[in-house]
């Protein structure tokens, strides 16, 4: 590292003010972009949530009616919220576990790292419609990989899940799919794992801590900021999730029997099939509030388990 250029301090500004000034300089790109491209559409959708906006022919003020309808009269709103909650509760922790497990294994000194890393990143690269057909085969009740596996371990033919054909099994199928896709997330943790100072482990070993103990007392705390990032972004993504429903049901309508009618899918239908963008906007803001509340709770909890080595308070 070469020596930093020495610059004379500007007169009149204290260290604090200089730092604050630099702070604004650094966040300026985001602030400008936010004001230019994001805040307008966001506020518009907030306004629209109080209207009967249908995108092309009207936008009359209706007060709280969209919100009242959702909460008070619309069973599909609650149904979709329930489906999304189910998906979130299972897919987020499992996804993080899968990513962490793979990252930890890869952090061991095993041969073939490059190949393994590439393989585990494949689920992130494989996207789009091609994957759709794939999953239909994997979960085919008769010849799919999953049921063949279950048969092999002795599950009787009549108790084999029908997966996408059965409202009771369609969501678990999607959770399994989500774990596959989550494998690619290992990269986030691996990047963080590589930053954990080796000497920490060495000294812990001297202290006689076994591998599991080291994992809990060194690895997890040291990469906890990244885990926290995955918790928050994972929650946000899961709460907005709906693509899977397109795989399960013909035409992506949320079947069988609304069992994959996720919040996002219902919002899409409301906005673009029924053209009720006002109501859809209300749904979006309800979701935003829900997400923010969960995030705030997580933020409070994080004070107990997330450890920032280089924090600036």
């Amino acid at each position: 590292m070469s020596a930093p250029p020495v610059r004379p301090r500007r007169r009149g500004l204290g260290i604090r003010q200089r730092e604050a000034l630099w702070g604004f300089v650094f966040v300026a790109p985001w602030l400008v972009g936010f004001l230019a491209f994001t805040v307008g559409p966001m506020l518009f959708s907030l306004y629209a949530s109080f209207t009967n906006y249908d995108i092309t022919s009207r936008a009359d003020w209706v007060g709280l009616r969209n919100y009242q309808t959702l909460v008070g009269e619309d069973p599909r709103f609650w149904k979709s919220l329930g489906n999304t909650a189910y998906y979130t509760v299972f897919s987020v922790p499992l996804g993080i576990a899968v990513g962490l497990l793979i990252a930890s294994l890869l952090n061991q000194d095993v041969p073939g790292q490059r190949v393994f890393r590439t393989v585990f990143f494949l689920p992130k690269i494989l996207t789009g419609v091609a994957v759709l057909l794939l999953w239909l085969w994997v979960f085919n009740p008769e010849v799919g990989l999953v049921n063949n596996g279950l048969r092999a371990v002795g599950v009787p033919e009549n108790s084999l899940p029908l997966w996408f054909q059965d409202p009771a099994w369609s969501k678990p199928a999607l959770v399994i799919m989500s774990m596959w896709s989550a494998a690619g997330g290992f990269l986030f943790y691996l990047a963080a794992l590589r930053g954990v100072p080796k000497d920490l482990y060495e000294s812990a070993q001297l202290d006689g801590a076994n591998s599991w103990r080291q994992f809990l007392t060194i690895t997890i705390p040291m990469i906890s900021p990244v885990i926290f990032f995955k918790v928050i972004t994972g929650l946000t993504a899961a709460l907005q999730y709906w693509e899977g429903a397109l795989v399960v049901s013909e035409g992506g309508k949320g079947g069988p029997v609304d069992s994959t009618l996720f919040y996002g899918l219902y919002m899409w239908e409301t906005a673009f099939t029924e053209f009720r963008m006002g109501k859809a906007s209300a749904m979006a803001w309800v979701l935003l509030v829900i997400t923010l509340v969960i995030t705030a709770v997580q933020l409070q909890l994080s004070k107990r388990w997330v450890y920032y080595e280089g924090e600036t308070k």
Partner: peptide
């Protein structure tokens, strides 16, 4: 800027940034 520098309004701005990620794209 958000991680290493202290300036007034930083945490509020950061919260707003996170919120902007939480609004579903289909309505904007």
């Amino acid at each position: 800027g958000f991680a290493k520098l202290r300036f007034p309004g930083r945490d509020v701005m950061f919260a707003v940034m996170l919120a902007s990620m939480m609004i579903p794209g289909m309505v904007t």
